[in-house]
Structure formats: C-alpha cells, structure tokens
C-alpha cells in the first residue's frame, strides 16, 4: 500500500520544559509508515524549538496569536494555504481551539480538514462548567466555583476547607493552603490568563491521566491510561508509565460515548484511596505525552489524521502496559541566519 501523501499543519512547536504537543504529534505521524507527510509548523513565537527541528518540521510559518482575532489568524492560514495546500490542520493548544472552531466554515471552504470537538463539546467540558458536566454525564468531579475578583475569594470559606485548587481558565493550577495563598495565586494566574479563576475542591489521591481519541459518533478509537512518575515544578509530566486500568478506560469510553466526543482528549483524573476516580479536567486536545501512547501501540496522531481525511479507523483496544517515557532536554545548535529568516520573513 502506498503511503498517503499529505501536507499537515501543526501548532504547539514549543517543545520546552512545559511542552506543547506539536513535536510528539509529528513524531507519531512520521512513525506511522502509512502517511508520507510534509509537515508545516505554525509558530506563535520565534524561539519555539520545533521550528528549528528540520527532521521534524519541513517548513514553519509564524502565525498571529488567537487573541488578535479569528479574522487575523484565518487570513494568515489562507496565505499559508495558498503556498502549501494544507490537507490537515492539527491545533494543539486549548487557547487556540476556540478560534479554529469559529473559523471552521472557512477551513472547510479552503478544504483544510480538521478533527476537533464541536463548540458545544468544547464549552461544556470547560473547567468552570465541570460541576454541571459531572451531573449531566454521571461522573465524579470535584466541586468548584468561579471568581472574577480577589474580593470573591472570601467565598472560599463558605464552600470548602483549605487546601483548595486555584486554576486558570486555560492553564495553570496551584494548591492554596490558606486565604493568603489563594489571593497570591489569583493575582498570578489572572495576570497571565485573565479571569474567571476557578476555585476547585482539593481531592486527595493519585493523579492519573488518559489520552484518548473520539470518533465523533460516540466511539473511542484509542485510549491509553498513564501515571506521571516525575513532575516538573510547572506540574508537567517529565516521566510517565502506561497503566493496565480498566476502570480508567471504562470512564473514558463512558465520557466519549455520552458526549460523542470528536478529536483528541486528555482526561486528568484523581484516584482516591477508596479507588474512586474524579475527573479534575478534560483537555480538548492531544496532550504533550501522546508519544507514550504511540510507544505503547496506539498511534493516536496517525489515527486522528486518517479520521480527519474521512478514512475509517478501527478502534484500538490493546496497548502495552509498563511502557515508560522519560523526557530530556537537548541543546540544538542553529545559525542566527535561521532565526533572522523567521523573524524577518515570518517563515523558515
């Protein structure tokens, strides 16, 4: 069978100590053997390491931040598409998904395929909406409420005992052990990501995660559970191991079936000492540790590309347990000319 020749645009090339999923997604696609990709990197910052990884990314273009508006981002995508004829676009950041969802009609018109959740799926799993989500779909979630100003933090004592988890709407989460700490974290997160801030009940237990792919009709195409073995100061997994845990898989199947989830997903769960699973977050995209799933036998990036192209994918039901990933840092050497080209021309 001849490999499928596709031009695939990917964001999330920030392969830093708080990595975006771009490079692991590209590795999965390149490993597939069934796809012969030309990878187009879409970068928001000039120093995203993936830009300079020429064995991974064939060509990179800078794109405007989603906060500059859907119109600006879509205009840039149009320009890039005219040169590159993008077949599939894989957005890898929570913060940009909304913009691409709003631009979905334009992407369809350009014949750029995506495989992302619907606006409703995206909105209802939002951290701020998690209590309603738990009730609607019958899953355990920690109680939470949102605050828009530091004064609202007084409400914490009416709801919970400390510690509580203070979370940004897209990223960042801190455990606050006192009112004072909650105020500090409120300022820190709101300065970066704006409001509202989510105050979530702290559930004691072990954090476990699932990377999964929903086919948009209720079917789970892939799912691999993982436990973080080493966590960075930023709370990111530096090492993890695939688990043999049917309860985590059953919960994933249930959520994907109930919501008819379309696209990649990461479930962040807490397993309590009495073995209950609490959903603390649902990330609406492939996580940066997805290459563990590829290593364990489920090539989720490849499956996502095939689904985006309308090619049916058989559900992957097995994977190897006890497969580990360990991240490392690596100093790439590059010429300032490369940096110059990207900075001046917006492409490399």
């Amino acid at each position: 069978m001849n490999p499928l020749k596709l031009t695939i645009a990917v964001t999330g090339l920030n392969n830093t100590d708080n990595p975006g999923p771009g490079i692991p997604v590209i590795r999965g696609i390149r490993d597939s053997g069934t796809i012969q990709p030309r990878i187009i990197g879409l970068a928001y910052e000039n120093l995203e390491p993936g830009i300079y990884m020429h064995d991974m990314v064939d060509k990179t273009y800078t794109v405007p931040y989603p906060s500059s508006g859907t119109g600006n981002l879509m205009e840039r995508i149009r320009e890039i598409h005219e040169k590159e004829h993008i077949d599939v676009l894989i957005p890898n950041f929570d913060a940009e998904l909304f913009t691409f969802m709003k631009g979905i009609e334009e992407l369809n018109r350009l014949n750029i395929k995506t495989f992302i959740p619907t606006l409703q799926q995206y909105e209802e799993r939002h951290k701020a909406n998690l209590p309603e989500y738990g009730k609607k779909y019958g899953v355990n979630v920690p109680d939470s409420f949102t605050v828009a100003s530091p004064g609202d933090l007084k409400k914490i004592r009416d709801h919970f005992d400390f510690p509580v988890v203070v979370k940004g709407k897209f990223y960042d989460a801190y455990i606050a052990r006192s009112q004072e700490q909650a105020e500090i974290y409120f300022k820190k997160i709101s300065a970066k990501w704006g409001v509202p801030i989510i105050i979530q009940e702290f559930v004691r237990g072990t954090e476990v995660n699932v990377v999964a792919l929903g086919d948009g009709n209720g079917g789970t195409v892939a799912a691999v559970p993982m436990r973080k073995l080493y966590i960075t100061d930023a709370g990111k997994a530096w090492s993890g191991i695939s688990l043999d845990d049917t309860s985590m898989l059953d919960l994933t199947y249930h959520i994907i079936r109930s919501t008819k989830w379309k696209g990649g997903m990461e479930l962040e769960l807490i397993r309590t000492s009495d073995n209950k699973l609490y959903v603390i977050e649902i990330n609406p995209r492939i996580p940066a540790w997805v290459y563990l799933a590829v290593g364990a036998g489920q090539n989720i990036p490849e499956a996502l590309v095939r689904l985006a192209m309308g090619i049916p994918v058989q559900p992957m039901k097995t994977y190897k347990t006890g497969i580990m990933f360990i991240r490392y840092s690596y100093d790439m050497i590059t010429e300032v000319k490369e940096f110059e080209k990207l900075t001046i021309n917006g492409e490399l």
Partner: peptide, 9 residues
Amino acid sequence: GFVFDPMSG
C-alpha cells in the same frame, strides 16, 4: 526482585 504493579504503575 523488581516488583511492578501495572494498575498503579
């Protein structure tokens, strides 16, 4: 003597 619990990792 390495003991591994695949459910918890």
